[in-house]
Nucleic acid binder design. Structure first.
Lengths: 210, 210
DNA sequence: GTCTATATGCGGATAGAC
DNA sequence: GTCTATCCGCATATAGAC
């Protein structure tokens, strides 16, 4: 067996299983079985389940932080739509994080702390984004309204994919549609969009309603 | 020991522990220890943990269904504020349900189904509520906007209390403020509120910002 | 690096005495 | 109704051979 990088394969399999069946429901035995290796071998690479979760969480942080860094360069509705789309894709790729956050924070308090810090960073990025949109004349809102809009956007990007599973008609296993989620988030912004920027919004509305 | 109703005490203690520490983290042993009774005694009253969860979930359903039934009698902003307040109080009293929904649905699939059904009912109630507000002239919105508003309200009431724990500065154990949550939800409606109904909204804004 | 075998503990659930 | 004692299974984690 070549197994160029068993460690990486363990991480990939763990991520897939956590996303599909939940952090609490997936044991280290199950991960090992999925890969066709022994539990002892898995333990050689990761001395504890927490270390696997920790590593995956770090990748999630890195990916969101990258998106946060570029969020102040959003200048138009289609920039916003793309930014939301990319964010929902990232959250969907690591969907176990927010979906199982209560369990994660209770089982691994250190990760709960980091999740709070990440949320704080997301809030700052969203505020910068809203201010950039106001400055660009894409939306018209008071400072207070922009602040609330930023909070709504973070709330929505954080929780929407979890909520979606509660809406009947959607199979829990069925993969999410980041485009639809992004469109939903845009409706929050919709009331504040200036007349000049409505065109793209109407285009998206036509695309996602029906 | 009198213990007029050990069964009820078990339910109360379970609810408190589930809310405080999470459904997954609380074992039947822990519940028994909290009450100072033996695990065997607990098993006499509830043959399985699932039956405890089931009973609590039913009470949650009953409470929300009661609120849903009266949601079409909302005719003004202060009615809406009260309705939201009562709903957040109910969800907060059984906060483990939505906070640990992923675990709950995976561990007890039947309850996952019922949660979906409850969400469907909440959506219908919210739509009726929005239509009543439009009819009463409290808000001005197209049918499509009213539909989206209803979805946003259900999303927010369902997930807000879970999200709140992710915002730094709030102790996870600290109890939620239903008033603040209700105010947050009102900001979703705010852009659509007609001029005649703005007074109460401004009053609430003054009350909760500062 | 990978395996087999095993230690240790906990959670759910049960049997039977009081 | 309540207790003590116990079984069973699973999950994390370890030891030591290959």
């Amino acid at each position: 067996m070549a197994s160029p990088n068993t460690r990486e394969r363990i991480l990939q399999a763990s991520l897939a299983l956590f996303n599909a069946q939940g952090l609490a429901a997936v044991s280290t035995h199950r991960i090992a079985a999925e890969l066709g290796i022994s539990p002892g071998n898995l333990h050689y690479h990761f001395k504890a389940k927490q270390l696997i979760v920790d590593r995956l969480f770090r990748r999630f942080e890195d990916r969101l932080e990258l998106l946060n860094a570029s969020s102040n360069s959003v200048r138009a509705i289609d920039d916003l739509w793309l930014a939301l789309h990319l964010r929902f894709e990232a959250i969907d790729a690591y969907r176990f994080v927010y979906r199982d956050m209560a369990f994660l924070a209770s089982e691994y308090p250190a990760l709960g702390q980091r999740a709070q810090a990440l949320t704080a960073q997301n809030l700052l990025a969203a505020q910068a984004l809203c201010e950039a949109l106001v400055a660009a004349g894409v939306i018209e809102a008071t400072a207070e309204e922009a602040q609330m809009l930023a909070l709504q956007m973070v709330f929505t990007t954080t929780c929407w994919l979890s909520f979606e599973r509660l809406v009947p008609g959607r199979d829990a296993l069925q993969q999410a549609d980041p485009g639809l989620a992004a469109y939903y988030t845009l409706t929050l912004v919709s009331p504040y969009v200036s007349r000049e920027s409505r065109a793209y919004l109407d285009y998206l509305r036509g695309k996602y309603l029906g």
